[in-house]
């Protein structure tokens, strides 16, 4: 337009695109790494319902509101819901996956520190959504 040259703008756009390509590539790579579930991971079924969590271990034992796992082992969560959508979240281990009606969603982790960590619901699910909490207990 109106006679002036636009090369600074093109360089600027070029730099933006390069940065975006870098962020995109890094993100793609990290996602690829964290999505790969180890073959020996033990399955834990996670069932959300208004407003508590139930866990079912591979050996059939069930827990409500509390989840006991062992340090250094890999676990695969299979997440479902009995009523409305929820989201299963252990923030300290960056575990997050929606519990969607009619689906089984997966996410895995391998705890590397013993201790107690909060479990919470991250998807609005009605009256007591804010209080849909549990505890992850990682044992040595």
């Amino acid at each position: 337009m109106s006679g002036h040259s636009n090369w600074p703008e093109w360089i600027y756009v070029g730099v933006i695109i390069v940065l975006l390509a870098y962020v995109g590539a890094e993100a793609w790579n990290v996602e690829r790494l964290v999505e790969h579930v180890p073959a020996e991971a033990e399955v834990i079924k996670v069932i959300g319902q208004q407003w508590f969590w139930t866990f079912e271990h591979a050996d059939g034992t069930k827990e409500v509101g509390e989840l006991h796992v062992k340090k250094g082992h890999a676990y695969k969560f299979e997440i479902t819901t009995k009523d409305v959508n929820h989201a299963f979240n252990i923030h300290d281990y960056v575990v997050l996956q929606d519990a969607v009606a009619g689906r089984v969603n997966e996410v895995w982790f391998a705890p590397d520190k013993a201790g107690e960590f909060p479990i919470q619901c991250r998807e609005y699910c009605g009256l007591l959504h804010y209080n849909m909490r549990g505890t992850l207990i990682v044992e040595e």
Binding site: L20, V23, G24, E26, A27, W28, V30, E31, V34, A87, H91, V94, V95, L96, R122, E123, Y124
Partner: peptide
Amino acid sequence: VANAAMPFDFITHD
């Protein structure tokens, strides 16, 4: 841009 990076969503979503 950070939100778009899919693994970051495990930290920030909702």
